[in-house]
Design a binder for these strands. Structure first.
Lengths: 153, 153
DNA sequence: TAATAATTGTTATCATAATAACAGTTTGAG
DNA sequence: CTCAAACTGTTATTATGATAACAATTATTA
């Protein structure tokens, strides 16, 4: 392959646009299904809890790749809206376990097909090999940064 | 290729981690060079202006793929810190052109090699073909969302 | 020309991202 | 056992991302 014009392959720019599109598409797909009262990120928590109810906050943070302050805030919102509840752990008083309420379970059930459709759309026209390639290239970028700049991530 | 486990190729998760790493690496590379008084995003504006000084805000927004309110805010910060100045356009009184101050030019000059190093790191070990593949796969994802959800992006 | 529409920058609002710091609790080394 | 270290959730702060709405200005069109 000939020398490429690096300007046309500015990864930061491409990542930024892709994340924007990802977020906009996520929010729009929720809106189309009358689910716009909570955000894409908050749905991530609800759907995680349908698979593993009773996780505590740090676990949720780690699984979703977020930090604890953000999870605290998102869970505050979900609790205020009545979708989840916090419960003290008797064996470790530092821990707050998080459970879906009935309302939260119903919400998550409605959200699941929406998420599945969304997952189908993002990779539409992709072969399995394309998917593996994309993800592994992203991981290689991450690794480059990790090694050069000693990131925790 | 055999059926893949989609869970291990959750694009939202991978994109999120990659963007986090990208931002963390960017901020750290600035810090290592004593440039941490402004952010990676703000440097994007300074460096753009070294190439095209006198752009007005909407142009900057479009080129950087951001929206106008965010550009207003970032330019406020850069102006407060003395790196740029706004200048009214005589032929169109809606427009504010943005210019680097001397201090801003010096800052951008210091930042350029840092950015170049950063650009080198992100694609370390990548062939030109890898780069093209990564970017075009990201664009395909974006296109999928655009078509399905009628995004403006 | 006059009314309408579009553009530009701004403000306000809400949510996320990231870091630092803190209190309460638990763990572990000496 | 004791005390320092680590863990958990929280609060505060700063910046970005995104949307809605606004005033001032310019362009369009009827």
């Amino acid at each position: 392959m000939k020398e490429i014009n690096k300007k046309q392959f500015n990864l930061g720019f491409e990542l930024g646009l892709t994340v924007s599109a990802y977020r906009a598409a996520g929010q729009k797909s929720l809106k189309l299904n009358g689910l716009e009262d909570i955000t894409k990120e908050q749905f991530g928590i609800l759907i995680l809890l349908t698979m593993r109810d009773g996780l505590y906050q740090t676990q949720i943070a780690n699984i979703l790749g977020k930090d604890r302050p953000n999870i605290t805030r998102m869970i505050d919102i979900l609790e205020t809206k009545g979708y989840i509840r916090r419960e003290k752990d008797s064996s470790n008083r530092r821990i707050l376990k998080v459970f879906l309420t009935e309302k939260g379970q119903e919400k998550a059930e409605i959200a699941k097909p929406v998420r599945d459709k969304f997952s189908e759309v993002q990779y539409r026209g992709f072969s399995n090999e394309d998917i593996v390639t994309l993800v592994s290239l992203l991981r290689r970028v991450r690794n480059n940064f990790k090694e050069e700049y000693n990131l925790e991530i």
